[in-house]
Simulated assay, not measured.
Amino acid sequence: MIRSAPVSPRVTDETVELGVQLLERLEHEELSLAEAVDRLETITTSPTTTRTILDEAERRGVIRREGGIIRPRGGRFLRFESEVITKEGEFTCKRCGASVTTGYFMRLDAGEHGPFGSSCIRKVTGRE
């Protein structure tokens, strides 16, 4: 039996914090659980970590869950001029996997998150 290496608690804690901060900064009034998971999959594809992020966000009052609906309660939206930055280079979008030459990155307290293409950054943040 092949066993994978254990995940470092620090990496998991940082991932959870990044996910909670992403949910806190969404510009959606509400979104389905599937749409929230779509956003969180830019951070982790682990169902356990995704569930932990959602539980922690709810515990902190960042979101409210009602059935399959998520309602962000942060009200602190990302400012595109200062909290979403662009970098030129060869990137792969974290959401759709497309190759992009202009990468958009979110500056969150937990760290920088990206790159995203121009349409995916709007989708992830809730501006589209």
Rank of each mutant, 00 (worst) to 15 (best):
M106I: 15
A110V: 10
E66I: 00
T50P: 04
V62P: 00
T48Q: 09
G114Y: 04
F116G: 03
V16I: 15
F105L: 12
T125C: 06
G89R: 13
V37S: 10
V16F: 01
I53L: 08
G74T: 13
D109I: 01
T102H: 09
E112N: 08
G103R: 01
M1V: 14
E41R: 07
C93T: 03
P115F: 12
G67S: 11
R79E: 12
G61W: 14
G126Q: 11
P9Y: 01
R73Q: 12
F91E: 02
S4I: 05
D55E: 15
P9N: 11
G126N: 05
H113A: 05
C93Y: 00
I70P: 00
T86E: 10
G19V: 05
T42P: 08
G74N: 12
R71Y: 03
R59T: 00
S119E: 02
R51F: 11
P115E: 08
D55Y: 05
G74D: 11
T44V: 02
R60A: 05
G89N: 05
D55P: 05
G97F: 06
R79F: 07
I69W: 10
M106T: 06
R39Q: 13
E58T: 00
E14Y: 01
M106G: 09
E83M: 05
R107E: 07
T15Y: 02
L31T: 10
C96Q: 04
K123P: 04
A34C: 09
T52N: 13
C120I: 07
I2Q: 14
T102G: 04
V37A: 12
D109V: 04
G97H: 07
C96E: 01
R51Q: 06
V84C: 14
E90H: 08
R10T: 14
R95N: 10
R73I: 01
S8H: 14
G114P: 05
T49Y: 10
S4R: 10
A5F: 11
L54H: 02
R10E: 10
L31A: 11
D13S: 05
T52E: 10
K123E: 10
T15D: 04
D55I: 04
T44C: 03
T50A: 15
H28E: 03
R95K: 14
L31W: 01
E88M: 06
R127L: 05
R71W: 07
G103K: 00
C120W: 10
R51A: 11
S119K: 02
R10M: 09
P115A: 15
E27W: 02
R39C: 13
T12I: 01
E24V: 07
P47Y: 08
D55R: 06
D38I: 05
I53H: 04
T101V: 13
T102A: 11
T102K: 06
T125P: 00
E66T: 15
E88N: 09
